[in-house]
Nucleic acid binder design. Structure first.
Lengths: 234, 234
DNA sequence: AAAAAACCTGACCAGATGGTCAGTTTCAGC
DNA sequence: GCTGAAACTGACCATCTGGTCAGGTTTTTT
């Protein structure tokens, strides 16, 4: 991954001191939280250090600059993002595969909302740090998986859809529960999303995605309007 | 609108000097652009002034503080956001009404991407300035329109869907073309989205939304898998 | 045309923030 | 337990940025 080339840390296998490993974790976690809340410019090294429970100078001892820290946080997030499309293969059952993917994305939104928000913030502001990743790794991943979906459609196993745009829609629909959490909560009249809320949201997104492909969704019955009302006002 | 109460400007009807009206427009436009690119903290009054083509002191003469300027920009955007759900009424045709709404949202993403980005940024970072708006005006608007959609479902005119979450999905799917524009472009391998790209995106989102409600979409034919596997590829 | 009001701006300032550094403490290997 | 390396940190600094202000110019009103 080209991004953490500059950082020079966070390799997992790199035996760069034992203490370092432990401390870095806390700092990255704190940084993710603060970057998520305040954005790159809005976050201050002092606050991140404070949240991590270390002096500011120590934070700078681990990460040479705010920029380096931010890149390290992003690198962590990108690793999370990539390992998710595996369920989508040509020989898999479309409904099962798509469901698995959507569920994985929703789980990520529920469990790592800060990661999602940092990523969202980075992209909204032009993706200056991860443009390369988007243009190479992400793009080729999407192209491969989109080809699979196209094949499903060609085989008549799903309705024809624009596969690439379907990914955009799935990302948007799932990540909205992390990124736009405050809006969702406000409209629902809650202060935070409970696990049942997340289940409900997941069921809804599954319905949308499956129906978009002409697949029956488990929650409700048919994929078409089943109870044709006697009063067909046409 | 409670938000611009603090600002004391931007009323439209307020005859607060003719020169003021004209200048304010340029400054708000410049501010929207810079806030969209850099976020609240990342934007500087100096840069906004520069983009607007006025000295920094003049900008501060018009807007007492960065905060006030930001609130004014947000107030402008919220006005845009509200006036869009009108097509969704109980007696309207579901497919027509939903299509109109989605089209309006997509048009907004294409024409005012910066507005969308400022709004997105505000929400990602906790919606501290517009929480009140979300909890009152937006919430009640959604509740009313969701009731309409529920009624459609009860009448068997569409498949049952979680109407409130359907709004979240529509917002997410449409705004992603403004907010996450850089990601979309990177994955598509383009440097910017052309009008045809936007049409394609609109057609896709329409397909997703209509099929989610069990409605036939004009672009493709049926709402279910019509051509059985052994069929000719149309 | 004079007075008042509104508009405009260069120069300046106080506080915040990213980053440096010299000196101290802790750890690992011998 | 000795030694060098790694880890750590308080104090400090240069810069950037939001905001002020005194004084000037233009527009409006009388």
């Amino acid at each position: 991954m080209s991004i953490q080339a500059d950082t020079g840390v966070d390799d997992g296998a790199r035996l760069k001191g034992r203490i370092r490993q432990r401390q870095e974790g806390a700092m990255l976690k704190a940084a993710e939280k603060v970057f998520a809340r305040a954005g790159f410019q809005g976050a201050t090294m002092a606050e991140i250090a404070d949240v991590a429970g270390v002096p500011k100078a120590t934070l700078l001892y681990y990460f040479a600059s705010k920029e380096a820290l931010y890149r390290a946080v992003l690198a962590n997030i990108l690793a999370l993002w990539l390992a998710e499309t595996e369920s989508i293969t040509a020989d898999a059952d479309p409904a099962t595969a798509l469901s698995a993917y959507v569920r994985a994305k929703m789980r990520l939104s529920a469990r790592r909302p800060d990661a999602s928000r940092v990523f969202a913030n980075e992209i909204v502001h032009g993706a200056t740090h991860i443009g390369e990743y988007l243009r190479t790794e992400l793009r080729s991943t999407v192209e491969k998986r989109a080809a699979v979906i196209d094949q499903w459609a060609a085989e008549g196993r799903i309705l024809p859809v624009d596969a690439t745009h379907l990914f955009f829609t799935i990302w948007a629909a799932t990540q909205t529960y992390a990124d736009f959490d405050s809006q969702v909560c406000a409209v629902l009249g809650k202060t935070r999303l409970s696990p049942p809320d997340h289940e409900r949201a997941t069921a809804h997104v599954l319905t949308v995605v499956l129906r978009s492909c002409g697949l029956p969704c488990p929650a409700h019955g048919a994929a078409t309007i089943s109870p044709p009302p006697a009063n067909t006002t046409h």
